[in-house]
Design a binder for these strands. Structure first.
Lengths: 320, 320
DNA sequence: TTTGATCTGGCAACCGTTTGCAAGGGAGGA
DNA sequence: TCCTCCCTTGCAAACGGTTGCCAGATCAAA
């Protein structure tokens, strides 16, 4: 049905290799021949078969993008950006979802191995050791995880957490609840690291938690009970869940308790009160991850992107 | 590097064809041999090369999923469901985003043609005619669009719009603003069709609009000015935008104006006031679309999924 | 006119799997 | 004992491109 390189060759009386070269090494073919071939190809609607090309060259022009949860609003902008960037480089993107399960993550990577030119691993839940082992079989770029020698796109969570804490301290909060994320999350560790060193603050840790609204909802009561006047949540979804839970207990945000999230997702922007949050550069990260994957000769370049505290309505002065 | 069928064959002293058959037609090989082969394959970490398989069989075990905008919260659950369903059938999913641009949509489809076994086309912006033409080159399942002879997953938008309108009428609303979506949206047409036939209601149409918060925000002033006491919006994002705009004008929802959306996305559930909306079965649609694509011998089965009005806090009695 | 360098394009092997065809072996019936 | 028939396996030709190698042509310089 579909035109192959052979049809094009026949149509303009040249050998298949000439057609092949017109596309993959144009400088090796005479301009006159080249344009004849291009015309014939265009005429027949020829599109090179990627599977066939992959077979000989070993390059598929596909990449895998693995995220913890597609439905978590943090990821879609990242996926979108990565997809768009990849398409500009003639790459197709397989998107897959681990449902926060490290075993699914591993299996997914194994499935992708040798079927793609590289994998973008976003917010992995696997251990560093495991990721390093898997990286022997397929090039990786990790997002939101620092692994030595491996290309990575990091977001400056530490700085973000620091400014959030300073913001809260500046509003007079001392006892602050830190609602962390799931086990295996680098982001969560970074936050805890910064918080643990924060001077003059009285931190109460809650975790691990599901990185969802449900996760936030589930700890809301404990948070309220612990006497904290402010909450720093693992992400916006958790923050929103906490607010939801608090308001069900008739606890006002920010009047009685202030809440800060992470990510800057749409629901947070639309929420009442509008969520104060540390914006994560998801779009830039998606783009950058693709670039890194395509550039990297396997070199472990690490890019750290800045975060920014966005003060909205969910934080206010501590009640005295 | 990676083990091929040849390595496995050598490792257990059989011909490659036997190894091949162990995987693709197990009943044709002796159980004893089969287990020897499987052991060797497992030992070497053999995974069949999909590109090579695609070359001979003509089946790639890949499918394309094209949506208008990945970042629109309506799609991620659909994408997630489709991806998960596909993975269960050993399929990989290319996800792509048209940015609401029909030309990008067309180009994307062309790119996917012959590289995938089929395309899931969600909420297309292309004309029926164009889609039919493109369908000659690659199997489609369309979601949210009825095209004769083509497998489709539809959502019962008409019924949803009808119950929304009845709900509003029951609350005493007569003059209702209908804020529609983008050109080329079947959903938008369905809504308008139902609305146009609604007895005893005074409808004011606004459109076309971007299917985003910004789109809603942009018409909020006009909506307020037209004297309507209720709004039926193309989707939740638009509804949220309208609410946003109204509240900026100090117009209370639902006290002064009631708002109903479509989709039932997360931000709407978290919003204050919680959004009354017509829930669209995105998850079921994603799953169903995959099944339809895989089952269909090209037959044009059409599935219509039910919608459900979810009454929350953004609708109330009309002020008299 | 000869020489040699440079272009251009053909030839054919190869990438990893699948699959139609055929051959070898064993079992069962005559 | 011989003949079928079935089961199992091997053989080899595809699938659609890519690419190293080689040969003929072209052209400039000698």
């Amino acid at each position: 049905m579909a035109a192959t390189i052979k049809d094009v060759a026949r149509a303009c009386g040249v050998h298949v290799s000439t057609v092949s070269r017109t596309f993959s090494a144009p400088h090796l073919v005479n301009p006159a021949t080249r344009s004849r071939v291009l015309a014939a190809a265009d005429d027949l609607g020829y599109r090179p078969n990627r599977a066939a090309r992959a077979l000989t060259t070993g390059r598929t022009f596909n990449m895998g993008l693995i995220v913890a949860d597609i439905a978590n609003p943090f990821f879609p902008p990242l996926i979108k950006a990565a997809q768009s960037q990849a398409r500009g480089r003639d790459y197709h993107v397989f998107v897959a979802d681990t449902d926060e399960d490290p075993r699914v993550e591993e299996e997914l990577i194994r499935t992708f191995t040798k079927q793609v030119d590289g994998v973008l691993l976003c917010s992995p839940r696997l251990s560093n050791k495991m990721i390093e082992r898997l990286a022997e079989d397929v090039p990786f770029v990790v997002v939101n995880r620092r692994i030595k020698g491996m290309p990575a796109v990091l977001m400056n969570v530490a700085q973000g957490a620091k400014s959030a804490l300073e913001h809260l301290a500046g509003l007079g909060h001392h006892r602050i609840a830190l609602v962390s994320g799931p086990i295996g999350s680098w982001t969560s560790n970074e936050m805890q690291g910064v918080a643990a060193e924060a001077p003059g603050l009285d931190l109460v840790f809650f975790g691990p938690n599901q990185p969802t609204e449900a996760g936030g909802l589930a700890v809301a009561a404990d948070v309220a009970a612990c006497g904290a006047t402010a909450v720093l949540a693992y992400n916006d979804l958790v923050a929103l869940g906490v607010i939801e839970g608090l308001s069900a207990m008739e606890i006002g945000v920010p009047d009685q308790i202030s809440v800060v999230g992470f990510d800057d997702i749409l629901p947070g922007r639309l929420n009442r009160p509008k969520l104060t949050t540390v914006a994560m550069p998801a779009v830039a990260a998606g783009r950058m991850a693709v670039d890194l994957l395509l550039q990297s000769g396997g070199e472990g370049a690490t890019v750290t992107l800045d975060t920014a505290l966005i003060i909205r309505e969910s934080t206010g002065r501590a009640q005295t």
